[in-house]
Design a protein around this nucleic acid. Sequence first.
DNA 1: GCCTGGACTATTGTCTACAGTAGCCAGGCA
DNA 2: TGCCTGGCTACTGTAGACAATAGTCCAGGC
Lengths: 253, 253
Amino acid sequence: MTDPPVAYRHQVGAQESQIVLPPSLVDVAAGQLRRMIIGGHLLPGDRVVENRLTQQLGISRPPLREALRVLEREGLVRALPRKGAIVTPLTLHDVYEIFTLRHELELLAVRLGIPVRDPERLDRCRARLELMAEAARSGDQAAFTECSFEFHAAVIGLSGHQRLEAAYRTMQLQMLLCMTLNHRARADQENLVQNVGRHRRLLGLIEGGDRDLILQELAHHGDRTFLDDIESTLDGHTDVALAWLERARKGED
Amino acid sequence: MTDPPVAYRHQVGAQESQIVLPPSLVDVAAGQLRRMIIGGHLLPGDRVVENRLTQQLGISRPPLREALRVLEREGLVRALPRKGAIVTPLTLHDVYEIFTLRHELELLAVRLGIPVRDPERLDRCRARLELMAEAARSGDQAAFTECSFEFHAAVIGLSGHQRLEAAYRTMQLQMLLCMTLNHRARADQENLVQNVGRHRRLLGLIEGGDRDLILQELAHHGDRTFLDDIESTLDGHTDVALAWLERARKGED
DNA sequence: GCCTGGACTATTGTCTACAGTAGCCAGGCA
DNA sequence: TGCCTGGCTACTGTAGACAATAGTCCAGGC
């Protein structure tokens, strides 16, 4: 997808101190794999064969294997010794785990981060929200997902708690993995725009700085606690997730 | 250290279903690296040079690099692009992060796991506590640390929440990393035995099944909230951590 | 007709080798 | 004396090749 950097090119940006180095193949490969999984090109349970991927990505096996180790720690991939790797298969219990832990991390972030101390962090949230809005206007589903992901991470980042944010990002990724289970998960542009509206309201609450109000909102959702749909649901897919959850409850594991 | 398996040997255990496979070099290397870091042989900020380690461990670079990727995701090691890796350097803020997040994960585990549903899980806690006690009796500091680590993981595992347990293990590891900052962190055998006693009381509380009582105990510690010393402090090193925290608060970053 | 054994293929686990980069040190120039 | 520059060394990033294993398919025997 991105052109493989045959040689390292040092690119000096507008600001002289900002030197942009091409990322290592491991990072590139990890990013591509994430996109393939989140994008639904690789579904939970699918085999992840190294040779095939090296050809697709145009790299050799060592960096790919390192990338797979990263993905494994992120929970997107499961390694079966001597049998290769598969995209993490999900059960209903997995979904439960992902949503509960994610919810809990959000609560903690609100407790630690609201009211906001560092206005600069708030600016970053605003900027990413605008990127979301732009993606929604253009109707680019993939871009919207990515922007939304980054917006949420930025919100969690208001806490200034890097480890919390890292754990949250992991859970977000796995939530996106859940979403791939439902093929009907495509939202139309209308939905995207509405979603941006919800996120804008969330940002308003945050700017208000009333921690308890936000926590109250979070706790207010009763049965849907771990599928809270106001400040954190990604891409307006809450209903989809709920539906899947319901379906899974009745039928398959 | 461990003999390198020149050939793969399938070992069939007493129970026929239990086939013991030799672990991959990546796992071996990751384990060894963890021990080197937790054991204080590699201190925060120390460079982690690949070539040196391959010689020490008797393996080649690819599996070692994969192991480093794992450790990186665990937060024990930080990769500096094109400059190698270092053991994660810790600031006061890092310690704050580690203890707060760990504490929060504990609270969640108690809320989800108490009262205990699956008695088998409780048995595992008991078994590991006995291992701890044995290590304390023999005064084996390293073994005690490892047993304690596993005991706590088992307690968190009462929740049946694998992702929660995984996140907790990560924080535990990083907490052990914090401990290496203080060279006086060696506890004598007396301390170890006392520590086992505290853990035994915790297990008693858990067996009692009174969730609120435990949560109350956890919240009861006021200033020391995130250094709670009853149910989760490892190895009786709370005081050491507090002292270090105090020292860091005044002086260095 | 079904089961068992063996060879084959696909794939993972590991190693060695090479390309390219960052840091260091000596030497030259202002 | 101080700074810059060139080359050297140590190290990381990546590639390709080999060794070993797990699964599969087919042939042969019961």
